[in-house]
Design a protein around this nucleic acid. Structure first.
Lengths: 209, 209
DNA sequence: GCTTGAAATGAACGATCGTTCAATTAAACT
DNA sequence: AGTTTAATTGAACGATCGTTCATTTCAAGC
C-alpha cells in the first residue's frame, strides 16, 4: 500500500528495526510476536517478510548492526591520540560510555539475546565482541610496557572494566541527577585506579571531544 | 503416579525448580514451555500445576529464592569481622564471588528475566536487589569515615563493583584455567584500588574461610 | 483387603505463534 | 492512459502455547 508518500522502503526497514529493538529489549525475543511488531508500525504481519526473511534473521541483523556500529565507531575514535597507554585507556573509557549511553536497548539485546541466536549467528556476534575486548586488552598490556598502567591480569581487568562500564546502561536515566560527563569522569577515575595508572593521576582531563 | 519410591513431593518440587532454572537461563522465560519443562523431569505438563499455580508464579519463585539465598548468606557472612571498612569490602568481594560462581543460571535469570515479571513481583525483587546494593554502599561510606577507603561517589562505585563482580559468571568455567581463588585475589586487588584502599595494600590475604 | 487422599495423567480448550500465498493496491515508468 | 513493478493485505496452515479437568494410578492407614 505504501500509504505515506515518503515511504521508500528503506524508511520502513529502519522503522521495523527501531520498533523491534525496543520491543525485544522490553519483552524479550520469544515474547515479541511478529504481529505485535507489525502493528507497532502500522503494517500487517505479512509485510515484515518483505524486509526480513525470518524472525531469527531480524534478531541477528539487529545484533550485527549493533556490533558493527560499535567496532566502526571505536575504529574511528582510536585513530587519534597515539602514545601513552593511560591516555588510550581514558579514551576507551569515555568512548565506551558515550557510545552506549544512547543505546540502552541495543546493549541489553546484545547481552540478553545471544542465547536466542543460531550457533553460526552466535559465533559471528561473539567474534565481534571478542575483537572489541581484545582492543582493550592490548591497551592494558601496552600500559605494562610503557609503564603508565599496572594490571596484574590484563585479560581479567579488561572484562572487569567492560562489565562495569556496560552496567551503566542498566541504571542510567537521561532525566536522572547525573550528567554523562559526571559519569564519565567518575568511571575514569575508578578505572584508572583499578588499572594501576601511575602517571598524570591528577591530569585526567585530557578529554577528547 | 509417583513412580519413584523416594518421591515425596518436596523432591519433585526441587527437581522442577532446578530444571526450570536451567531451561529459562538457556532459552529464556517465554521460550521455555511447561511441556518441555515437565518432560525434562519425566512428568506430564499437568503435573506441574500441583506445585506451581502458574508459570509466572514459578518464575517469581525462582527469582525470590535466588535473592533470599543471597541476602541470607550475606547476612551471615557480614556478622564476622567488624571494624575497618577495607576489611569488610574484602569480605564482600570474596563473598560475592564465592556465592555467585556456583549459581550462574540464577544470576543470569535475576538479571535477564526481571522484565518478565508482573509489576508487583518486579517491585519485590527490585527491593531485595537494592537492599543488597545498599549494604555495599554503606561499607564504602564507612570507609570514607574511618579513612581506609576513598571513593568519590560511593553509590556509583557500588554499582561498578557489583557489575564487574557479577560479570564474572558470564565467562567463568569450572574447567577453565583460573581457580576461584585466583579470581578472588585478582578482583580484590582491582576493587581495592578502585575504591581507594589506603591501608594494608599488601596484606590483602586476611581471607576468611 | 478396603478405603482414603494425594500424585499424575491424557485429552481438550481457546489463543497465539511464525510463516506462506494468492490476490490486491499503490506507485513509478513509458 | 496503460503497463509494470513494488508494497501490502487477509486468510489460512500446522504447530505450540498455558491451563483446566475428569479420570486413573499409586502409596499409605486401618
Amino acid at each position: 500500500m505504501a500509504r505515506r508518500a515518503g515511504s521508500d522502503g528503506i524508511r520502513t526497514e529502519a522503522a521495523i528495526r527501531e520498533a523491534a529493538l525496543r520491543l525485544i529489549a522490553r519483552h524479550g525475543y520469544e515474547a515479541m510476536s511478529m504481529r505485535r511488531l507489525a502493528e507497532e508500525i502500522g503494517l500487517g504481519a505479512a509485510a515484515l517478510y518483505r524486509y526480513f526473511p525470518t524472525k531469527q534473521a531480524l534478531l541477528f541483523d539487529l545484533l550485527r548492526a549493533h556490533m558493527e556500529e560499535l567496532l566502526e565507531a571505536w575504529g574511528r575514535a582510536r585513530l587519534a591520540a597515539p602514545a601513552p597507554a593511560i591516555d588510550r585507556l581514558e579514551r576507551f573509557t569515555r568512548f565506551h560510555i558515550r557510545h552506549h549511553l544512547p543505546r540502552p536497548d541495543g546493549v541489553f539485546l546484545s547481552y540478553m539475546e545471544l542465547r536466542s541466536l543460531t550457533p553460526e549467528n552466535f559465533a559471528a556476534i561473539e567474534g565481534m565482541r571478542r575483537s572489541y575486548e581484545q582492543g582493550l586488552i592490548e591497551i592494558l598490556e601496552d600500559g605494562q610496557r610503557d609503564g603508565t598502567l599496572d594490571c596484574i591480569r590484563p585479560r581479567l581487568a579488561a572484562r572487569a572494566v567492560i562489565a562495569s562500564l556496560t552496567g551503566i546502561t542498566t541504571w542510567y536515566r537521561a532525566k536522572g541527577p547525573l550528567s554523562p560527563r559526571e559519569i564519565e569522569d567518575t568511571y575514569w577515575n575508578m578505572i584508572a585506579r583499578m588499572c594501576g595508572a601511575t602517571k598524570t593521576e591528577r591530569a585526567t582531563c585530557s578529554t577528547p571531544a
